[in-house]
Design a protein around this nucleic acid. Structure first.
Length: 516
DNA sequence: CTAGGGTTAG
């Protein structure tokens, strides 16, 4: 109470937790203000966008509201679109049409629902929403059109994205930026570049989008040039460059830029810190990672789950398993998919296959749906611990239960799994039955297994297949000569070595013993 | 309200 008057909206602004909002809601009910749509709408907005883990409460406020309006529905649709369950946006959209007295969806309803479709990469739902938007005459609306562009691009339909853009009567800079992003999502950096050069006005967003596009397609030099010529840069420009360098293995450049931004007095944000921590880990700079950890503790960034996840990985890779586990156990808030995957992968790296499997099941039991990367981690765990049957079980679980399409990485793990177990024929059989054509990495994995088990006959067959997919391959020479060496076929070893272009490899120490 | 940067696997 302020001066004896109950001011719910003033009090609402101070609510930082769900508990405080529910207390306020009780007072609102007592004061008989729950039928006030403005108050109810703000209550829902606060829970759906400002307080974490309060979305469910926002939804129940909507369901219990005596006179729900479009704003309330739209706010809940918006909240779900960015949540772990974007699908609920659509059920809410349908509820809006079904339950209420002829409430019409507006541009907000479509923009938020389309965002959910984009996050789910659901072309089927996206195209239904597009049709509905046409029926309501909103498909050319600037905001709806912009979100349609993103939705089609996320679903891989760049031509649809372009068509929608062309129909927007007066596209603004945001719409242009959405189209550039669309090209990049569909791996058309050149297309993005020509739009970037052609657009009437550019802003910092536009340049940052191009920086990320160049980095994602490995054009580090082009990104660097653009960055150097940008008149203004913000923290996103820096974090884009740092994570871009990180993904392309340019660790030195990443450190330099981090230092430079520090000297300029730019305070590092969560993304920059995540990136530089990952760079420290990848380059083995564990002492620097240690310093970063101290800084993260002092600045409070450690409580962020993404930082915590990255730190866990750092400690696993530096060999400090105890610290990694402790970070996982003491992690504030809910452990997400990446937290669990990092634990599975880290444990697998130490060779503890059984424990990795236990973690994987704990993850599933806690209600988290494993993704493609989680399955790579558990398959890796099985292959490195020699758990052939379990690996096969996970592979079928992935394809049958979770409907995840296996990638080269998954197939590679399976070939490795059969190979290490000495089931070379089964590995070969598995490769021939794959729905996609085996690449060089897959054949090289099997060639490695042939070497370990000394199967020269199959090894030679595999070598033929490898040259079919990569005629210029020379990377297999090492494996091949190792294979011959393992069975004492020194003449063949020499034959292969002579074919090798890299002389340094020929003159490795101890080589002269064989030559004699 | 719509557009930009993110950790884990390989």
């Amino acid at each position: 109470m302020i001066n004896g008057t109950f001011m719910p909206l003033t009090l609402l602004k101070r609510c930082k937790t769900l508990t405080s909002v529910t207390q306020l809601h009780t007072h609102i009910l007592k004061a008989g203000l729950d039928s006030d749509s403005f108050i109810a709408g703000n209550l829902i907005l606060h829970c759906a966008t400002l307080i974490s883990d309060a979305l469910h409460y926002a939804h129940s406020l909507l369901l219990h509201s005596p006179h729900p309006d479009a704003f309330m529905y739209n706010t809940v649709i918006r909240g779900f679109s960015d949540s772990d369950h974007p699908y609920s946006s659509f059920t809410t959209f349908i509820d809006m049409r079904r339950n209420s007295n002829n409430l019409q969806p507006d541009s907000f309803s479509f923009a938020f629902s389309l965002k959910a479709a984009a996050n789910l990469r659901s072309y089927d739902i996206g195209i239904q929403l597009h049709s509905q938007a046409i029926l309501h005459g909103l498909h050319n609306h600037l905001y709806v059109g912009t979100t349609l562009v993103s939705m089609y691009a996320e679903c891989g339909w760049i031509s649809h994205a372009r068509n929608v853009f062309d129909e927007i009567p007066q596209p603004n800079i945001v719409a242009w930026n959405a189209l550039i992003t669309a090209c990049i999502r569909c791996s058309d950096v050149k297309g993005a570049e020509s739009l970037y050069k052609r657009m009437p006005v550019r802003d910092l967003h536009s340049s940052n989008i191009m920086l990320s596009g160049y980095m994602k397609s490995g054009e580090v030099h082009l990104a660097h040039n653009l960055f150097a010529n940008m008149p203004t840069k913000d923290d996103v420009s820096y974090s884009t460059m740092i994570t871009g360098f990180s993904h392309n293995g340019h660790f030195h450049e990443a450190f330099n830029l981090f230092q430079q931004s520090h000297r300029l007095g730019l305070p590092p944000n969560e993304v920059t810190l995540t990136g530089i921590l990952s760079v420290s880990t990848q380059s083995g700079e564990f002492q620097f990672a240690q310093i970063l950890h101290c800084y993260l503790q002092k600045s409070g960034f450690v409580s962020r789950s993404i930082i915590n996840n990255t730190l866990m990985d750092t400690y696993f890779k530096s060999g400090n398993t105890t610290m990694a586990r402790s970070l996982f156990q003491k992690m504030p808030g809910k452990k997400n998919l990446v937290s669990w995957t990092t634990m599975v992968a880290g444990t697998a790296m130490q060779g503890h296959g059984q424990e990795a499997m236990e973690l994987f099941h704990q993850m599933v039991d806690s209600g988290i749906k494993p993704d493609s990367i989680a399955f790579i981690s558990i398959l890796y765990a099985c292959s490195h611990a020699g758990l052939l049957d379990h690996g096969c079980k996970y592979f079928s679980m992935m394809t049958n239960d979770y409907k995840i399409e296996p990638s080269y990485e998954h197939y590679g793990c399976m070939v490795d799994l059969y190979g290490r177990a000495g089931e070379l024929e089964k590995a070969y059989d598995f490769i021939t039955k794959m729905p996609i054509e085996a690449n060089d990495v897959i054949w090289r994995t099997l060639l490695g297994a042939c070497w370990i088990h000394g199967d020269v006959e199959l090894g030679e067959e595999v070598k033929k297949r490898l040259l079919e997919v990569d005629p210029n391959d020379s990377g297999d020479c090492v494996l091949l000569s190792n294979m011959y060496a393992s069975v004492g076929k020194w003449k063949d070893v020499l034959g292969v070595r002579k074919l090798m272009k890299d002389e340094k490899l020929v003159k490795t120490p101890g080589w002269s013993i064989i030559e004699q």
